[in-house]
Structures are given as structure tokens and as C-alpha cells.
Simulated assay, not measured.
Amino acid sequence: MKYKSVYTYTLLIPAAIIYGVLFILPTLLSFFFSFTRWDLREWQWIGFENFIMFFEEPSLMIGFQNTLIYAGLTMGLKVVFGLIFAVFLCSKLKTKSFLRATVFFPTLVSTIAVGITFSALMHPSRGLINETLAMLGINGPNWLGNPNLALISVALVDVWKGVGIATVIFIAGIMSIPKDYYEAAQIDGGNKFNEFWNITLPLSRPAINTVIILAFIGGLRTFDLVWAMTGGGPGFSSDLIASIIYKQYQGGFYGLSTAGNVILFMLVAAIAFPLYMFLNRKEVDL
């Protein structure tokens, strides 16, 4: 038995080395360099100065607010639309395999490519979206140039791209529900809405919790789509914490931006872990 135990742990050594080199070591180095002023050649210990400077950033509060709004909006829409699509795609449709592939396809496309494409589609005068609205007699807005619409426009594109993952998770959850429940509901005279409300929705709670956590964390960490579509503009109206950190990297403030990454990591952890515990507690109560 002891030999088998040693042999088992031996097989884990290569994976542990890779995990340590690619995750643990960079994480520890990030925490260390967040307390320094550094470049590619040398570093100087400055304590908490980077963190103080980061919290004095004029656009930081806007970034925090935008990040929470963006994460909450994209998470909510992915849960709602993902569940609706999953219920529809689990019904008796002849083309459901094709439709499932169609819903999942945007997930496979590069985020930068999606951002560039939708930037063209949302152009205020030459974009296909506004040209289509003009044919209907509607004056389309400046989707990415209006400070009140830019963040919401990017969030909607994020939902379009990411709802496929949520749909797949919900489909897996719905498919795992025993058919006996639905047969019993039909015998009792229940309609489709009763089946959804009393069977599908409660028993899909594990899938719902998974989508909420993944989508919310993804929203908090989003950078590439926002940068490809708006660059954080106009002004700071669509800046997220991640885009603020990137701008600091661009300016050569490596220690300051590293401190920002540490703060973002702690923010995600401070929200994700309590949310995970809360959702699991609610699941057990059911």
C-alpha cells in the first residue's frame, strides 16, 4: 500500500512542477514586484507606495463602478438567455443539433476579432446595424461614441459571444434531470410552464450557480473585448479595472500596474469566494 501511495504521488510531480512554474511562481513574483519600482533591468523596494498611487488614480472609481456594472449585466443576461436557449434546445426539435452548434459558435471566435467586427458593425454612420435601422426609419445611436451607451454596447457583444458556454452548461444540467419528474407532471395535468417552474428551474440550480460564478468572474476580469472596441473610451466611460492597469503598463509604470493586478486579484477573490459559499448554501437548503 505504501509503494502504491508513493507511485501515485510520483505521477503528480510533472503536473505539480508545471503548475508551480506557470502559476505559483508568477503569482508570488507579482506580489513581490507590486512593492517595488522596477523595469526590465533593475528594481527598487518602495513598500506600499504603488498601492497608494493606484488608489489615487483619478479614473479608478469610474473603473470600479464600470467593472461591477459590466460583470453584473453580462452575468445576468448570460444566465437568462443561456437558460432560455437551453430549454428551447432540449425540446423535440429536428434541427436542435445545428442550432446548438450555431449558439456555441461565437465562443470559438477570437475575442479581438469579435471586437473589431462589432466596432465596424456599430459605426454610427457606416455600420450595418445603423444602416439597417435607417431602412426602418430609425435613427441609430452612436453605440461606441456615446458615453452612456459604450459600456452597455460592449457588454451586449460580450453576452453574444459568451452565452454559448452558459447554454452548454444549462443543457448538461437539464439533460441530467430524470424524465420521471416530467412524466409525473404531465400525468397531474401540468403544462410546459409548470414543468419549467417546478422541475427544470429548481433542479437546474447547480448549473445556474456555475454559470453565475463563471460569468461574474469573467466579467470582473474582462479586458480584451473592451480594449478592442473602445479602448476604455470615450473618456473613461467604458474603462474597467483591467484596462486601467493596461494603460499603466503602456505608460511604463510597471510596479504600479503590478500592484493594480494584485488589487484586481484580491477583488475577484473577495467577491467570488463569498458568492460561491452563498450559492452553495442556497443549493443545500433546497
Rank of each mutant, 00 (worst) to 15 (best):
M1I: 13
K2C: 06
K2I: 12
S5N: 13
T8W: 14
Y9W: 09
L12N: 02
L12W: 06
A15M: 05
I17R: 00
G20S: 06
L25C: 11
L25D: 10
F31K: 00
F32Y: 13
F33E: 02
F33C: 04
F33D: 04
S34G: 14
R37K: 13
W38H: 10
W38E: 02
W38M: 04
D39I: 10
L40A: 15
R41F: 15
F54N: 03
I62M: 11
F64V: 02
N66E: 00
L68K: 01
L73R: 05
G76K: 06
V80E: 08
I84A: 04
F88T: 13
C90A: 01
C90V: 03
R100D: 03
T102R: 06
V103L: 09
P106Y: 11
P106E: 08
P106N: 09
V109E: 08
A113G: 05
V114M: 13
I116C: 00
A120R: 14
R126P: 06
G127Y: 07
N130Y: 02
L133D: 05
L136D: 01
G137P: 07
N139M: 14
G140M: 12
W143D: 08
L144C: 08
L144I: 09
N146E: 05
L149N: 06
A150L: 00
I152K: 07
A155G: 01
V157N: 02
V159M: 06
V163M: 15
G164I: 05
A166C: 11
T167Y: 06
T167V: 02
T167Q: 02
F170N: 07
I171R: 04
M175Y: 14
I177G: 05
I177L: 03
K179M: 07
D180T: 08
Y181V: 00
Y182H: 13
A184R: 07
A184K: 06
Q186N: 14
Q186R: 15
G190P: 08
N194I: 01
E195K: 09
N198K: 12
N198L: 11
T200L: 12
L203G: 11
L203K: 12
P206D: 04
T210N: 13
G219E: 01
G219D: 03
M229L: 05
A242T: 09
S243R: 14
G251N: 07
G260L: 02
G260W: 04
N261V: 01
V262W: 00
L264H: 01
M266C: 10
F273H: 11
L275I: 08
N280C: 08
R281Q: 14
D285G: 07
L286R: 08
